[in-house]
């Protein structure tokens, strides 16, 4: 077995291991009752102290929720809690599902836009090609995060608010994520199509009368499909990271309830997600870090980073197989 093949198998095994670990954690998290991810919890006098949220990882506490303060429950916080005393494992597990839904939607939009523009660049008429390339240059002129923020802003008018967002915010996110990353996909599609176009087998097929969809299906698609599969994996990783960065900058999908800890409205407040999403869980990271509370910042950040890492590893593992002959 060649060294390259061993390397690829190791990457594949690592990607599967990371994904399996995350899936197991999500499965365990979803088995924790919903109330530990939705209610606000306070701890009672226990083992000589009254712990304040965020509770430490691995602590067992007697807690009661704001909905039924008279009921006391003993709860084991595997990864600790957020500022509202909500179990981080339960919260993160519930946040994964809407985040992945958003990633899939944004990924579809990005790929469709990229593939469409790639086709135009490779096979369109000259004015269309010029327009597509100019649009690419303008998009490339922006720092990607600034562009994403500006596009979302143009749909919503500002960062996330207490109000539960409507469909406009979702559309804004999907458009922003698609607009930011389509150029790479378009360049990949265009370069592959142009490469196939110059090959003797494509020239031969054309000479034999093959054209249009038939030519594309038989001679272009097999090369494009492999490249797009790998690109999909890399793009999934990039979208996850972008989602986290946007969440950190207060741009996320879900609504929230504000938790004020100081006196008056001017005091910094935590934003407790009403329907948790990973990006939104990143929005309070800076506040937690200023207070040197690292678990509520690290758990969502690591979840996102590990998910992105697994997609990146998957892409690298299968990449070597599809390099074009030179």
């Amino acid at each position: 077995m060649s060294r390259d093949r061993i390397q690829r198998l190791l990457l594949l095994a690592s990607a599967i291991a990371v994904l399996a670990t995350l899936a197991t954690l999500v499965f365990i998290g979803l088995r924790i009752p919903d109330r530990f991810a939705t209610d606000v919890w306070a701890a009672h006098y226990f083992h000589g102290t009254i712990p304040q949220p965020p509770f430490l990882a691995g602590s067992t506490l007697e807690v009661s929720s704001d909905r039924s303060p008279q009921v006391r429950e003993l709860h084991f916080y595997v990864l600790g809690s957020d500022a509202g005393g909500r179990d981080l494992l339960a919260l993160t597990a519930r946040a994964v599902v809407p985040s992945l839904e958003l990633v899939v939607l944004a990924l579809i939009a990005r790929m469709v836009l990229g593939i469409g523009v790639g086709f135009v660049i490779a096979a369109g008429t000259e004015p269309l090609r010029t327009i597509a390339r100019s649009a690419g240059t303008w998009i490339a002129g922006f720092p990607y995060l600034a562009l994403a923020v500006l596009v979302i802003q143009s749909f919503t008018g500002g960062p996330s608010t207490v109000a539960v967002p409507g469909r406009t915010r979702l559309i804004g996110f999907v458009v922003a994520i698609a607009v930011v990353g389509w150029r790479d996909v378009a360049e990949l599609v265009a370069s592959r199509m142009q490469w196939v176009d110059a090959q003797p087998f494509a020239l031969g097929a054309r000479a034999m009368g093959s054209s249009g969809l038939g030519l594309f299906r038989r001679h272009v698609w097999p090369y494009l499909r492999q490249a797009l599969t790998i690109e999909l994996s890399f793009q999934a990783s990039a979208v996850l990271v972008l989602l986290a960065e946007l969440g950190f900058l207060q741009y996320y999908l879900g609504g929230f309830t504000q938790l004020f800890e100081g006196i008056g409205q001017a005091a910094p407040s935590f934003q407790l997600a009403t329907s948790p999403e990973l990006g939104q869980m990143m929005s309070d990271v800076r506040l937690y870090l200023l207070r040197q509370e690292f678990a509520p910042a690290l758990v969502p950040a690591l979840t996102l980073a590990l998910a992105a890492l697994s997609f990146e590893l998957l892409g690298r593992a299968i990449r070597g197989r599809t390099d074009l002959p030179t």
Binding site: T137, W138, G141, F142, L150, V151, Q153, F155, T156, G157
Partner: peptide, 19 residues
């Protein structure tokens, strides 16, 4: 490129203002 960035940014921010 800079003129394109100017116009696109102006358009996006102005559109945001309407919301």
């Amino acid at each position: 490129q800079i003129s394109g960035v100017l116009v696109v940014t102006w358009f996006l921010v102005s559109r945001g203002q309407t919301h």
